[in-house]
Structures are given as structure tokens and as C-alpha cells.
């Protein structure tokens, strides 16, 4: 960055605790314990960045987003979004950001999609001409033309997600926050969605904060990755850097034609386990050091391979490793 612009998201020692009441069976009093969902989180996101925010379930991602958008009040620390205080200046902030919560709809279920768009245009007080051109634009890019007259509850999941994103972008916000937007989508829909987001960013320089479990989303959309584990920031940097830090490994699963001894002495790979007395074997390898093809060749030298598959690093595994490595 050549000139300093005010950060679009700024977190300083942000923390959020929850008191959990649990009633034991047959006991009169309730146990109270404190759950720290977000623990002194600090990071800064500059305008125009595209950031992936990942972590295991319950790691504090949704809680962070709620604090960024003014839904939840921090227990301590501070958050500033678009230079505003999220809770106190919630309404002003709402004009500048667009948020999509993957599991919850912000559209009107029983009306045709186009009505949801026109209501939202009125809610954001967009003037008719702008609203119309923006809606047309979004509908075209997200290929929602056919769905416009369908009641939202009858849309497929893929169509609904695209509709939610269009709705969030209708007022051309400076910051877009997407919480698990591709969950449950098929490959094609995911692809289309990603392409749209990339286009939108290049066109308008919208900042993107994306929460996801899908590494594919991160790979294609984000230049920066924030990993959160148990409420703490475990990693802040680029994606290749993440893989490198963690030493993330892919796993080659081979089905052999005949039972064989454990292939534990192949170069650049670790034998993880065998099933069916050696007919199926799992071999982990570091993507930096070797490739699946090379490893497969090695295996084929020893035995006849009937079938194979490749497992990508599990995000939970990656996160766990990061956390262990930064401790």
C-alpha cells in the first residue's frame, strides 16, 4: 500500500465471554461456567483486501462477525468497522456493509424474489434508477433471471445463496461479510459464486471477509488467511504460507489388487494405515516435497494399483496443527 487509508476493520484485544448455565439432572442449582468465545483478538483489514477467516466449529468465527456488525457487544477490547463503532453506530454501519449468514435468510420467504429486492432497495433508500440498474446487473451476473418470480421458499439452495448475496450487495457496500456462503452447495454453484465475488471485487474494490470450511473457497478467493482457534488468532498471513507453516499433507489412498505388506518405506511419504490386510493403504505426503503422481508411480513399482483417491488436508487438522505449532 502506497498511502495509508483508514482500516476497514480494526480489532484490538477483542474478547467475548459467555456464561453457560447447565442444569445437572436432579440438581436444584445450576452450574455456571464462563465460555470464552473470542479471546483478545487483534487484526486489521485494509480496504480492498480479501480475507479468509477460518477455524473449527465453535472457534469463535460467528461471534467475531456478530461483534463486527453490531449484533453482539464485546466483553472487552474494541472493534471498529468502516471507522464506526458497530453497536453504537449500528444503523449507519448497516448502510456500508453487506452481510450474508449462510444458515439464516434475510429475504422474505413467501414473496417472489424480485419483491425482496425492491423492498431492500426501499430499506436502503436507493433511488429507483440506481436500484433497478444494480438489480439487473446483479441478477445477470448471478444468473438469477429465471428465479426472480419464484417465491424465495421454493428456490433451490444454490439459487437461494446467490439471492442472499445479491441482496447483501444491492446497496453496493464497502465491506461484504460472508458467513459460510457455500455450505451445502454443489460444485458448479460454488464455482459460479466464486467467480461472481472475484468480479465484484475487481469492479468495485469491495473488501471481502469470508468465513468458510471450504479450502477451495479460500484458495480461489482470498489473498490472506486468518485462522482462529478457541477464540485466539492462530495464524495471519497468506495461504501458501499457511500450508507451509503447517506442513499440511495430502493423503493418497490406494486400493491394491492383492493384499500386500505395509508400504512404509516409500520415499517422501508416511504410511498412515492399512485396511483389509493391506489391500487399502493410506499414504500421507507433503505437497511441497512430492506430488501424488510421483508417489503413485512408486507404489505401482511395488504392487498393482486397482483404484485410488486423494484426500485433501482437513481444515480441522490444519488448524489443530497450527495451534500446536504456535503454542
Amino acid at each position: 500500500m502506497t498511502h495509508q487509508e483508514p482500516a476497514i476493520i480494526e480489532l484490538a484485544d477483542l474478547s467475548r465471554e459467555f456464561t453457560v448455565h447447565r442444569k445437572g439432572a436432579g440438581r436444584l442449582r445450576r452450574d455456571r461456567s464462563t465460555l470464552t468465545a473470542v479471546d483478545r483478538l487483534s487484526f486489521v483489514i485494509a480496504p480492498g483486501e480479501s480475507v479468509g477467516y477460518i477455524g473449527a466449529n465453535g472457534a469463535g468465527k460467528s461471534t467475531t462477525i456478530k461483534m463486527l456488525t453490531g449484533i453482539l457487544v464485546p466483553t472487552s477490547g474494541s472493534a471498529r468497522t468502516c471507522g464506526l463503532e458497530p453497536v453504537r453506530q449500528r444503523r449507519e454501519l448497516a448502510r456500508r456493509i453487506g452481510v450474508v449468514f449462510g444458515q439464516r435468510s434475510q429475504l422474505w420467504w413467501d414473496l417472489p424474489l424480485r419483491e425482496s429486492f425492491s423492498i431492500l432497495a426501499a430499506i436502503h433508500r436507493l433511488d429507483t434508477a440506481r436500484a433497478r440498474s444494480r438489480t439487473t446487473d446483479l441478477v445477470e451476473q448471478l444468473e438469477m433471471g429465471q428465479a426472480l418470480d419464484t417465491p424465495v421458499r421454493q428456490l433451490s439452495l444454490g439459487q437461494r445463496m446467490r439471492a442472499e448475496i445479491a441482496a447483501a450487495l444491492l446497496h453496493s457496500p464497502d465491506l461484504v461479510i460472508l458467513d459460510e456462503p457455500t455450505i451445502g452447495l454443489d460444485v458448479l454453484s460454488k464455482q459460479r459464486l466464486r467467480e461472481f465475488l472475484i468480479h465484484e471485487r475487481t469492479e468495485r474494490g469491495t473488501t471481502l471477509l469470508l468465513t468458510t470450511h471450504d479450502m477451495g473457497d479460500i484458495e480461489r478467493l482470498c489473498d490472506r488467511v486468518l485462522v482462529v482457534d478457541h477464540g485466539r488468532l492462530a495464524y495471519d498471513g497468506s495461504l501458501p504460507g499457511l500450508a507451509a507453516t503447517v506442513g499440511a499433507r495430502r493423503v493418497l489412498v490406494v486400493d491394491l489388487a492383492a493384499p500386500a505388506a505395509d508400504l512404509s518405506d516409500l520415499p517422501d511419504s508416511e504410511h498412515l494405515g492399512s485396511e483389509g490386510s493391506g489391500m487399502r493403504q493410506r499414504l500421507a505426503f507433503d505437497a511441497e516435497t512430492t506430488t501424488a503422481a510421483t508417489l503413485l508411480a512408486e507404489v505401482s513399482k511395488r504392487c498393482e494399483v486397482r483404484d485410488l483417491s486423494i484426500e485433501e488436508p482437513d481444515i480441522e487438522d490444519v488448524v489443530r496443527r497450527i495451534y500446536q505449532s504456535t503454542r
Binding site: R90, E92, A94, V99, F101, Q103, R104, Q106
Partner: peptide, 14 residues
């Protein structure tokens, strides 16, 4: 309970 109240928080009205 369903979390849909959050949609209200994300709009620029009380």
C-alpha cells in the same frame, strides 16, 4: 430462537 432477528440488526432502521 431461529436467529432471524439478526436480519433486523443488519438493516439501517431501529
Amino acid at each position: 430462537r431461529m436467529g432471524t432477528i439478526d436480519a433486523f440488526y443488519l438493516r439501517p432502521q431501529p
